[in-house]
Amino acid sequence: MITSLSPFVGAAVVRRLPVRAGIGLKPEHFREILAAAPDVGFFEIHAENYMVDGGPFHHYLSRIRERYPLSIHGVGLSIGGESPLNDDHLDRLATLLDRYQPESFSEHLAWAGHGEVFLNDLLPVPYHAATLARVCSHIDRVQDRLRRRMLLENPATYVEFSASTMAETEFIAEIVRRTGCGLLLDVNNVYVSCVNHGRNPYDYIRALPLDPVAEIHLAGFAREVDAAGDPLLIDSHGAPVAQAVWDLYRYALEALGPVPTLIERDNDIPALSVLLDEAHQAERMLHGIDRHSREARA
């Protein structure tokens, strides 16, 4: 599917993330990155962590940003929220994007707060006409305010809602059709959610619109069981990427072609070299697909 007219005519020249693997930027690694200048495709930050006035976070980010492409990933906009979007937060986001000019900006199909309260988690949304309209109007507002196309990330979920009338893939496809946003395909989230809800993750990827996918996330999960003894996977971002997720990633790449890919790690942060090794593993798969698709075209 090709999205029609971009509503962001007049926006700054669009630069894209390189078709390489990147890693999350962690304060633990700031100095080492500047000293060692590792060969990595890009860095991704959580927007909210850098919404501070000054100090070391901006000191290091501005130096790292001079040397590497950057993706800014929001976790606090609450696009799926019943509450109106927080205009102050949107302004802070605009300021941050203006300052760092990232190649990509993404947020989640989730809500993170209600009323005045911020809950600091990515919470699930029922999939029906009313929530669809609300999410789309929030995305329209975000894209208008930021004057750029955003990528929307598919969620990892642990419960579903009896009020839902649409499949998640159908819901996401409709958001893309109505808002022109791009997608951030979190392959770990696909795997986690499909296992948690008894679905086939390969079917899920086949059901998504793939043209708008502009970034992939890979991460690790934790294993628990639900009250019936069935597996319940937790999107922990605290472990290496699991083999089942690498397999699904390979399948997604075959369908999508090569796409910038992030290794996400937010808990139990390992040494920089460990994250770089995972990024290189992703990059070998990316390039393998690249070669494969070039050969197929030849």
Partner: peptide, 22 residues
């Protein structure tokens, strides 16, 4: 109210993941 699970299991156990995360 309003939660569902594919296998009919108690949604409380699953909701607890969110509670725990928060």
């Amino acid at each position: 109210p309003g939660l569902s699970t594919w296998n009919g299991s108690d949604p409380g156990r699953r909701f607890a993941v969110y509670r725990n995360n928060v």
